[in-house]
Simulated assay, not measured.
Amino acid sequence: MQVLYRALADLTRRRIMDELALADGLSLFEIHSRLFAEHGTTSTRQAISQHLAVLEEAGLVWSERVGRTKVHHLDTAPLRSIIERWPLSE
């Protein structure tokens, strides 16, 4: 659970998740381009790759190879544990 909270604590990682929610199956280059265009993020591709690794470790992102390109997908299932623990209404 701590890995999940650590992954969500960073604004850039949450923005990556937002971009993957809007367009599933993005490459590192596409994520980098979208973060710059939509949010003005100046992170390098290497930094974004490290953020993606943290998100994958938390189970929030998974990736697959499509040809020579690695594409990333959002998985919101781990967020259910937060919702179940602290429901919005009681």
Rank of each mutant, 00 (worst) to 15 (best):
M1H: 04
M1V: 03
Q2I: 14
V3G: 06
L4I: 04
A7L: 13
A9E: 03
D10M: 03
L11W: 03
R13S: 03
R13N: 06
R15G: 02
I16G: 03
M17G: 09
M17Q: 07
M17L: 15
D18M: 11
E19A: 02
L20Q: 01
L20P: 01
L22P: 01
L22K: 15
L22V: 08
A23C: 11
D24E: 10
D24L: 09
D24S: 15
D24K: 13
D24H: 09
G25A: 07
L26I: 04
S27N: 03
L28F: 01
L28Q: 11
L28I: 12
F29M: 07
F29E: 11
H32Q: 01
S33R: 05
R34I: 00
R34M: 00
R34Y: 01
L35S: 00
F36K: 10
F36R: 06
A37V: 05
A37G: 09
E38D: 11
E38R: 15
H39E: 04
H39V: 01
H39W: 06
H39F: 14
G40D: 12
G40E: 10
G40S: 09
G40L: 07
T42K: 08
S43C: 05
S43E: 05
S43P: 01
S43W: 01
S43A: 14
R45N: 10
Q46E: 13
I48P: 00
I48N: 00
S49M: 12
S49N: 11
S49P: 02
Q50W: 09
H51V: 03
L52R: 15
L52C: 09
A53K: 15
A53V: 14
L55G: 01
E57W: 03
E57Q: 14
G59V: 08
G59F: 05
L60K: 05
L60H: 04
W62M: 11
W62Q: 12
W62A: 04
S63W: 05
E64D: 12
E64M: 12
E64K: 12
R65K: 11
R65N: 07
G67N: 10
G67Y: 01
T69V: 13
T69Q: 14
K70W: 03
K70C: 09
K70F: 06
V71Y: 08
V71A: 05
V71S: 02
H72T: 07
H72A: 04
H73T: 10
H73M: 14
H73V: 12
D75R: 12
D75N: 15
D75C: 15
T76I: 15
T76R: 11
T76V: 13
A77G: 00
P78D: 15
P78C: 08
S81D: 08
I82W: 15
I83W: 09
I83G: 06
I83P: 04
E84V: 14
E84T: 15
E84K: 15
W86A: 10
P87A: 10
P87I: 06
E90S: 14
